[in-house]
Computed example of a mutant assay.
Amino acid sequence: MAADQSIQPARSGAEHPELDMLEAIHEKNQSMAWQSRADALQGLSKTVSKQRNEILSDDLRRKIRTAIMKERSGDVRGPGDRFRSLIAAEQVGVDFSALKKIQDAAHRQVATTFAGASNRFRYSETVVGSSPDWFASPPPIIWTPLPDPNREKVFRPPFMGSWDRFIQNQATGDGRVIANDSYLDGTSRLGSKIVARNHDASDVDIISVRRETGYLVRFKTLRTGILQVKADLQSLYCHHSVVTEDEFGWSDFNASTRSRLVLAVFWNWEDVDPANETSDQWFVAGISCSGDGESYPGDTTQVQPGQRRIVNLYTTMAIEENVKVWIYVGLADEIWAFLNDVSIDIAIDSSWLLNSLSVRSI
């Protein structure tokens, strides 16, 4: 099975030796993690394809296609290809019950691989508002002659560094990644445009595309405690799209789009992983859909242009007093699809402004 897959090196827009080291460590770690997941998904695709072919062989599929073509007519009021394919499959003795069990088991495995286990505890809070809300009350900062550990330190554009942190492309079979572009401008804009399609998913195919972009600031802790990072963002546009078309009566698919807001804190450059990383898993909930491919969500506006969102993110571990850390906040856009005889066009086109970052130890 052919596969279109790659992971590209991260790039940052700041000239700093520590950031160079951070990029190298992160790239090595993410490459291994991504390759492990890509191999697992590729193996799952091959396993499911083999199991399905034991029930629905290539010879049976050709017979069903031939039967459909013979019975086609110009009458639009007559039964469609989906109905005729089910009848033809039943006539040649396809075990639909066994086929359904294989498909359900595969969907459970791939959903766990892509989305991960659900977390009932969220280390984030979200406030949704519009642009005028900012002027309704003064910023929550009071300047004092000496550093006050109870006050937030506010960072505004331009930030200390920008980071095109993660780029992933994976598409099996006839799947293609059409676009994986960043909107990162090095000042305050972040987001991405990721587009993939598979117009001939005649086998069990997978699509997985991701882009993560964000900004970095330098912060010195004034007390021992966890970090609270308040990110103030404003939407320029946020479109998510899933369009499908079924090819046979037993077709099914599972697809999702999602945008996460990520917080990572780095201070020990000898570590392989970021010192601490958390995220708002549903910053933009996106689309989650499944079925036979006959109906689909289409293009959706997930967040209205100009809408403002303030998200409080918290580290899951305390950091000692008087430690200098790099704080990264970024937007991770991800699309994925698990296809069984379903054609798909799937995309995210999302651009945001990061108005400010407010940081304090609590």
Results as ranks from 00 to 15, higher is better:
Phe83Glu: 15
Gly191Phe: 05
Thr112Phe: 09
Ser350Asn: 09
Arg82His: 11
Arg308Val: 10
Ile7Trp: 14
Ser57Gly: 01
Arg72Leu: 13
Ile194Arg: 08
Ser356Asn: 04
Asp299Ala: 09
Ser290Leu: 09
Phe248Gly: 05
Glu277Ile: 08
Ser12Pro: 01
Thr244Cys: 04
Thr187Met: 13
Ser256Met: 08
Arg360Val: 01
Val204Ala: 08
Ala196Asn: 06
Gln51Ser: 13
Lys220Trp: 00
Trp269Asp: 15
Gly43Ile: 01
Val204His: 08
Phe283Tyr: 15
Phe219Pro: 09
Gly293Asp: 04
Arg52Ser: 12
Phe166Cys: 02
Asp81Ala: 09
Val48Lys: 04
Ser358Val: 02
Phe155Ser: 03
Ser351Phe: 00
Val323Asn: 04
Pro139Ala: 15
Ala337His: 05
Leu190Asn: 07
Ile287Ala: 08
Asp345His: 06
His16Ser: 13
Ala67Ile: 02
Asp299Pro: 03
Leu339Asp: 00
Ser31Thr: 11
Asp273Val: 01
Ile287Gln: 09
Ala171His: 03
Thr315Ile: 05
Leu146Gln: 09
Met160Ala: 14
Arg260Gln: 15
Ile206Phe: 11
Glu27Asn: 14
Ile64Trp: 04
His107Val: 08
Ser6Ala: 10
Met32Ser: 12
Asp200Lys: 01
Asn268Leu: 07
Phe135Ser: 12
Arg156Ala: 11
Val177His: 10
Lys50Phe: 03
Ile178Gly: 05
Asn268Val: 01
Asn340Trp: 00
Leu263Asp: 15
Asp58Arg: 03
Met317Val: 05
Gly186Tyr: 13
Ser85Leu: 07
Pro79Leu: 07
Trp163Pro: 07
Ala10Arg: 04
Asn198Asp: 00
Asp185Trp: 15
Tyr183Val: 00
Phe135Gln: 11
Val48Tyr: 02
Ile206Met: 14
Ser192Tyr: 06
Ser31His: 10
Lys101Trp: 05
Val262Gly: 13
Leu60Val: 03
Thr221Phe: 04
Glu15Ala: 05
